[in-house]
Computed example of a mutant assay.
Amino acid sequence: MPRFAANLSMMYTEHDFLERFAAASADGFEAVEYLFPYDHDACGLRRRLDDHGLRQVLFNAPPGAWDSGERGIAALPGRETETRTGIERALEYAAALGCPRVHVMAGLTPAATTPSDRARYRDTYLANLSWAAERAAAAGVDILVEPINHRDMPGYFLSRQAEAHEVVREVGAANLKVQLDLYHCQIVEGDLTTTLRRDLPTGRIGHLQIAGVPDRHEPDEGELHVRHLFDVVDELGFDGWIGCEYHPRAGTSEGLGWLNDYRGVHA
């Protein structure tokens, strides 16, 4: 049966961040993910996890100037030192939190780039990912890349599944994997069942995420038949986590009927 992690950056926002761990645990979650841990002391976060019987399964490496609109810097030429310093910091947090995965965001690239510009971004991205994967391997951590749709994040360097898998193959590190967010994939490409059946058996998928399409609320409304998709994931024997990365329509706990129903059917 698929295992689900609460995304504490989007869920339980009716609580202060540090109180969200308890709320997620009370609703039956055994794992959490979120965007960034860096505003909090790692030891304090670890205490929250331990106190509430939770596992940390994912967070992002530092993304550059997030509040100023940056969305990662790993593909940006000239930012290599900052990228690598950020990855070192992320690995320190991963060790403290027992987190086995770190997502490294590529960044936004200008809307009108020439093929040679695109090649420069890609070369920078591959070099940084190769470095990150080597450093993370020594710590037993997987580095993840995620295709993100251009409706939500215009200009993001990586948007299609095939591009992400080609990056992983080209770098050739066993601990570099793809973060498959079914919300982003549906918006960009669709055909989710075929995508899951094609890509999960490769071993290159390190993490899944889910949200309703088109509005990124609970996945019980909109375009996705999530019970079918979860059954496909189960059928394929995926043993990782599915991050619930959505904005609840109202209260988080009140909106978990979709998950409680699925858990009840498969209890």
Rank of each mutant, 00 (worst) to 15 (best):
166 E>G: 03
157 F>P: 00
172 G>S: 08
124 T>G: 09
104 V>D: 01
148 I>P: 01
121 Y>S: 05
105 M>V: 13
115 P>Q: 01
147 P>M: 14
151 R>M: 12
131 W>A: 07
102 V>D: 14
149 N>K: 01
131 W>E: 00
134 E>V: 11
127 A>Q: 07
110 P>C: 04
159 S>N: 12
170 E>I: 08
144 L>F: 04
108 L>D: 00
129 L>I: 00
141 V>E: 06
112 A>V: 15
126 L>V: 08
143 I>V: 15
148 I>M: 06
126 L>G: 02
123 D>P: 02
117 D>M: 10
140 G>K: 00
110 P>K: 10
130 S>H: 11
113 T>F: 07
168 V>E: 00
128 N>E: 07
155 G>E: 07
121 Y>W: 14
109 T>E: 11
140 G>W: 05
139 A>H: 14
163 E>I: 00
167 V>C: 06
123 D>N: 09
163 E>T: 09
120 R>I: 13
127 A>E: 09
107 G>H: 06
160 R>Q: 15
129 L>C: 01
149 N>Y: 06
108 L>E: 02
128 N>C: 07
162 A>P: 14
105 M>H: 05
102 V>P: 15
155 G>W: 03
132 A>W: 06
166 E>S: 01
148 I>R: 00
137 A>Y: 06
164 A>F: 11
148 I>H: 00
106 A>Y: 08
139 A>V: 02
116 S>V: 07
141 V>N: 01
131 W>R: 04
164 A>W: 13
113 T>N: 05
118 R>H: 12
159 S>Y: 08
131 W>S: 05
152 D>P: 03
114 T>E: 01
144 L>N: 10
172 G>T: 11
119 A>V: 04
130 S>Y: 09
151 R>T: 11
114 T>G: 02
164 A>P: 15
115 P>F: 02
147 P>T: 15
111 A>R: 02
164 A>Y: 14
168 V>C: 13
159 S>I: 06
122 R>H: 11
171 V>H: 04
107 G>E: 12
156 Y>C: 05
115 P>W: 00
133 A>N: 10
162 A>L: 15
140 G>P: 05
146 E>H: 01
134 E>F: 07
168 V>F: 09
103 H>W: 04
110 P>Y: 03
105 M>D: 03
152 D>F: 04
151 R>K: 04
171 V>F: 03
103 H>Y: 13
126 L>T: 02
110 P>H: 06
130 S>A: 13
116 S>I: 08
130 S>I: 08
130 S>V: 02
165 H>V: 15
104 V>T: 08
159 S>A: 12
111 A>P: 05
102 V>W: 12
130 S>N: 09
153 M>V: 10
169 R>L: 14
129 L>E: 00
143 I>W: 09
169 R>E: 12
113 T>I: 12
163 E>M: 02
115 P>M: 02
137 A>D: 07
141 V>A: 06
133 A>W: 12
102 V>C: 02
106 A>E: 05
102 V>N: 10
133 A>G: 11
129 L>D: 03
